[in-house]
Computed example of a mutant assay.
Amino acid sequence: MERQHHLLRGIPVLASLNIKKTVDFYKSKLGFNRVGYLDDNYAVIARDHFVVHFWKCNDKIHPEHTSCYVDVKDIDILYKELQAFDVIHPNGKLENKPYGMREFSILDHDGNLIKFGQELHP
């Protein structure tokens, strides 16, 4: 039996200690320019084709143990853009990985780790 293709995309749902501060961080530091929903307990924001949801939590253990991975193009340009906002993780500088990706990572103000990667082409 042939399997149908039902899965369209994944959207991370990350923890936030303060929804409005989180949205401000993603807008001012990471260039997110679309807000689909925002209240004190939940937010949906986007930049380009990347959508992320945030839920309100009261324990920093949740964001500090959460991450997501974002496929990008023109990673060197994005890296320079985000480097100017001093959000690059100290151990997440831009580099080529042995598994065929060029990637870097950032930490948001709550501790969520966001990894950005672009496939290396031979």
Rank of each mutant, 00 (worst) to 15 (best):
A46F: 06
V72Q: 04
L82R: 10
D74E: 15
Y42I: 07
G10P: 04
Y69W: 11
H53I: 02
F32T: 03
V70W: 04
H65Q: 08
P98S: 11
L82Q: 07
I19L: 04
D59R: 05
D86Q: 11
S105G: 09
K56S: 13
L120R: 12
K56C: 07
M101Q: 13
N112H: 01
H89L: 10
D108T: 06
D40V: 11
D108N: 06
P90L: 01
A15D: 02
L94E: 12
S67H: 10
H121E: 13
F104R: 06
H49M: 13
I77L: 14
H65N: 15
F25E: 05
C57T: 15
L30S: 04
N41E: 14
N112T: 02
I77K: 15
I106H: 03
V70C: 10
F104H: 04
K21Y: 05
K27S: 09
D108M: 05
E95P: 00
F116L: 05
K27L: 02
K21I: 00
V51K: 13
A43M: 03
N58L: 15
S16N: 03
I45R: 03
M101F: 11
Y37G: 07
Y79T: 02
E64M: 10
H49I: 12
F50W: 08
D71G: 13
H49W: 11
R34S: 10
P63N: 06
D24N: 14
K20A: 13
S67K: 09
G31C: 03
Y99W: 15
H121K: 15
K93I: 13
Y79W: 07
L107A: 07
I106D: 05
I75G: 06
F116H: 04
A84V: 10
F50E: 00
D40R: 14
H121F: 12
D110P: 03
F54N: 02
G31T: 01
Q83C: 11
I114Q: 09
P63W: 04
Q83V: 09
D76G: 13
K97W: 05
H5N: 14
D108P: 06
